[in-house]
Design a protein around this nucleic acid. Structure first.
Lengths: 228, 228
DNA sequence: GCCGAATATTAGCCATACCTAAATTAGAGA
DNA sequence: TCTCTAATTTAGGTATGGCTAATATTCGGC
């Protein structure tokens, strides 16, 4: 067998690949080379090469031309990075004046540099939060995580009142727009209308109605009003 | 001329070399290849190679077989790293429960990952301190720094009362020992005795006398009682 | 079942940044 | 001045992690 790559001593690149594969292979599905390449903004051959090395390290399993899946070790390492990332985000927003739209980039670099000690001290300073500023769940130190996704605002039945639970952190611009509309985690909204052919949906926030495109409504995840 | 390497976009290694050269070439003197190698725990040929590239980047000047000196650009970049390092140390001690003996290693990795924004926010949270937890002066954002060194405790005249100003952060063990004796920045001490042939010195701290070796007394820098 | 497009991998190359071994230079003492 | 040693540089090699171009595979449509 191969060098079982202890969780320390992974390179920055390896950590990024593991996070990407984790994100792209929900429920034991396989992540494709091109999806990984797209997410990390790398060429497909670079990904092919790295995936080969990751499987030699015992961090993932690769079925050529089919896709990639994390092993238990890989998943553990990925979740460790996710925990770091989300705790760093929470810390920067809480204590250092970052906004939920700007914090991602900073965390993306810090997550590779902080020690376990520092991460746990930030967690303690925050009171061990369950979610980050975008509502994404923070894995426990042992790697356990609540992976229930919630319902996209786009799919909420008309007339139903729900609580916003989490918002995809991908695009800062989008986050700023949503914040301006008051569509942030914790807020309660009612779906008032949905137009056909992937048309816009109308949501009522705080007695004000907003019409938002279906694509936007797809990245806002909700749960029944009283959950969490 | 060469690519004038804007302050961003330096690699981690380059940043470490610049800091090392800065530290080893006080007052426009030259740093030697082997000193740099020793400080960074690298082989001498590795240093030779990197120094060549640094001078191609316009960050240092190298006279073969003589030594290395930073250019203005190199010095600016080095001081930027020193500022980051010392502010990070101050922040971790003030807000995240680090001790002055453990904070160096963490800062050593974070200094390469933080953004200018984050550094300045930490500085603001601290109230823009002038020195780090070891008493080392923190360069201003524009690179200006108070480089007056102070007098080693080993060289203070017998009978003279002085204030401890800064302590070399090199060895955590040593820092713990000094802290146990109460020999930390800000404390006022009186030199009571000095034995010949590089023998120990006796200092009085808070009405208690301690005998410490000359080597230890060499890394504790002092200033006249009322300075700072 | 065959074909072509899309996807993935292999081949071969480059830069960074390290290493050891060999060659060179500087400088101090006879 | 000459020589010997210590410091330094050059030569040549390795691992990581990218890239482009060429090749291989898969799979949907006919």
């Amino acid at each position: 067998m191969s060098a079982t790559a202890d969780t320390e001593s992974l390179t920055r690149s390896v950590e990024d690949y593991l996070k990407a594969i984790y994100r792209l292979s929900p429920e034991g599905r396989h992540a494709s080379t091109s999806d990984i390449a797209h997410l990390l903004e790398l060429s497909a051959p670079s990904v092919s090469g790295m995936v080969k090395r990751l499987s030699e390290l015992g961090l993932c399993e690769h079925i050529p031309y089919k896709g990639v899946q994390l092993t238990d070790a890989g998943r553990r390492a990925a979740l460790r990075m996710v925990r770091r990332h989300r705790l760093i985000e929470a810390y920067l927003v809480e204590f250092l004046g970052y906004g939920w739209d700007t914090v991602h980039v900073e965390a993306e670099r810090l997550e590779h540099a902080v020690s376990d000690t520092l991460v746990e001290r930030m967690a303690a300073a925050l009171g061990h939060p369950a979610v980050d500023p975008h509502g994404d769940p923070i894995p426990a130190p042992d790697g356990s995580i609540d992976e229930t996704a919630g319902t996209a605002l786009a799919d909420v039945p008309v007339g139903r009142t729900v609580g916003i639970r989490r918002v995809d952190e991908g695009d800062p611009e989008r986050l700023r727009y949503l914040a301006a509309l008051g569509l942030v985690p914790g807020v309660v909204v009612t779906l008032r209308d949905r137009q056909p052919f992937d048309g816009p949906v109308t949501v009522e926030v705080d007695a004000v109605r907003h019409v938002i495109g279906r694509e936007l409504a797809q990245v806002v995840l909700c749960a029944p009003e009283d959950v969490r």
